[in-house]
Simulated scan of single mutants.
Amino acid sequence: MTIRRRQWLALHLQFAAALAAGAHWPLAQAEEAGPVRLLVGYPPGGGTDALARLLAQHLSQELGVTIVVDNRPGAAGQIAAQALKTSSPDGRTLLLSHDHTISILPQVLRRPGFDAHTDFQPVAGIATFVNCVAVASSHPAHTWQQFVEWLHEQDKPSMLAFGVPVPASTPEFLVHRLAQKYEKNLMAVPYRGSAPMLTDLLNGQLQVGIAAIQDFMELHQAGKVRILGVLGSQRQSALPTIPTLAEMGIEGFESVPFYGLYAPSGIDMQWVQRWEKAVQKVLQKPGVHQKIHDWAMTACYMDHSELDSRERMHSQVWSRIIHDNGFAPR
C-alpha cells in the first residue's frame, strides 16, 4: 500500500468515526468552549430552579456535556430572556421557562426587550402544571368555603394581601378575579420569585400565596402550608381532594401552563433535533417522571413544533384575559 493510499484510508476512517459520533459532534465542540448554560429567570429554591437542576443532571448524562444552571432572577424572567436573546446560537445557552415569560410578559410590558416568536427557537416541551391558592398551616381555613368565609370577615389591608411570585402574572390576574367574585378589596403583592414569597408565608408576614403548584407541593406534604384550590379544568392526581377553582365558580383560567426549553434564534436545527430526542429520553426515565409527578406537575414531552403551537395558542388565550381585565401594558 502506497503512503498516499494509507493517508487517504486514515482520513476516511477518521471521517467515518466522526459520522458515527455525529450525535455528539457539535455538542463536543460546545463543551470545548465551556459548559452549556441553562438560564433560569428565578432565584434558587423555587419550582423552576428545581426542575432546571433535575433536567441539567439527566441531560448532561444523556448528551455527554456539562450543563450548568445559571439563575438570572428579576423582572419576572425578563432578565433571563434578554440574556438568551443576546447569546450566540452556538448550542451553549438555553432557557428553561414557563408560560409567563414567553406568552404573558410580552403582552403586559411595553418594552419587554425580546420577541419570543422571532428571537427564540423552541426546543422541547417539558411539563404542564397548574397554579394554586395556599395558606400557612396556622391559617384557620381548611377548605375553600372556610377561606371565603374568613375572607369576608377581614377588613385590615394586611389581611387582604395576596403574595404572587411576579407582577402581571397568572396569580396577579387571579387576585383581581377573586376580588371581583367576592367583592373584597384584595391586593396582589409581587415578589422576586416564589422563594421569598414562601418565606413570608411561612413566617406569618403573609396570609395567602398564589403560585405554581410545584412551589407549594413539598411544603403542603410536610404540613407547613395548605393548598385550598387549584386552577385548571380538572383536579390534580397528586391532590385529588383539592377542588378546582372552576368548581367554585371561578372560570377563565383553564388553559394549562407549561415549561419549555428555548435556544437563541438561528441555531442549527440538527442541534434542536438532538436535544429533542435527549429530552424525550430523559422524561421517560421512571425516576424523572416520578419526581415531576411528586411536584404535582405532569411530564409532557413536546417537540419544537408542538411547543411552538402550544405557546401561540396559550398567548391567544392570555390576550383575551388581559383585554377582558382592562390591563394596559406597563
Rank of each mutant, 00 (worst) to 15 (best):
L109H: 12
P106N: 06
P73A: 04
V65N: 00
Q57I: 10
Q57L: 13
A127C: 04
A81Y: 00
T128K: 03
R110L: 14
Q61G: 15
E62D: 14
T128Q: 10
D99V: 11
Q78N: 09
H117W: 13
V108D: 08
G91N: 00
E62Q: 15
V69L: 09
G64H: 10
I79T: 15
V68Y: 06
T118M: 08
T86R: 15
A83K: 05
Q107T: 10
A127L: 04
D90W: 00
P106G: 05
D90A: 05
D99H: 15
I102Y: 08
F114Y: 15
A75S: 11
D119Y: 06
F114L: 02
I102E: 07
V69F: 06
I67N: 05
H117G: 10
L84K: 06
T66P: 06
P122W: 09
I79Y: 10
D119Q: 05
P112M: 06
S103R: 12
P89Q: 05
V68E: 15
H58A: 02
L59Y: 07
S60V: 07
G113N: 04
Q121A: 10
R72I: 13
P106T: 07
Q121W: 03
R111K: 11
A116N: 08
A127E: 02
V68S: 11
D119W: 05
V69A: 13
R111I: 13
V69M: 11
Q82S: 02
G77E: 01
A124I: 00
D90P: 02
L59V: 09
V69W: 10
T66R: 15
L96C: 03
D115Y: 06
H58R: 12
R92M: 03
H58L: 05
D119T: 09
Q61W: 12
P122K: 06
L63T: 04
S87T: 09
H58V: 05
H100R: 08
G91A: 02
A80N: 09
L109Y: 12
T93F: 00
N71R: 13
I67P: 02
L105P: 04
L95K: 02
D119G: 08
T66I: 11
L94E: 09
I102K: 07
D99P: 03
H117Y: 08
Q61A: 15
G77F: 00
K85F: 02
H58I: 06
N71S: 14
S97D: 13
A127N: 02
L94T: 07
F120Y: 11
P89S: 04
F114R: 03
R110H: 14
G74Y: 00
Q107H: 11
G125W: 01
T118P: 01
Q61H: 14
D119I: 08
A75Q: 14
V108R: 04
F114E: 01
H100A: 05
I79E: 13
L94N: 07
T86I: 14
D90Q: 04
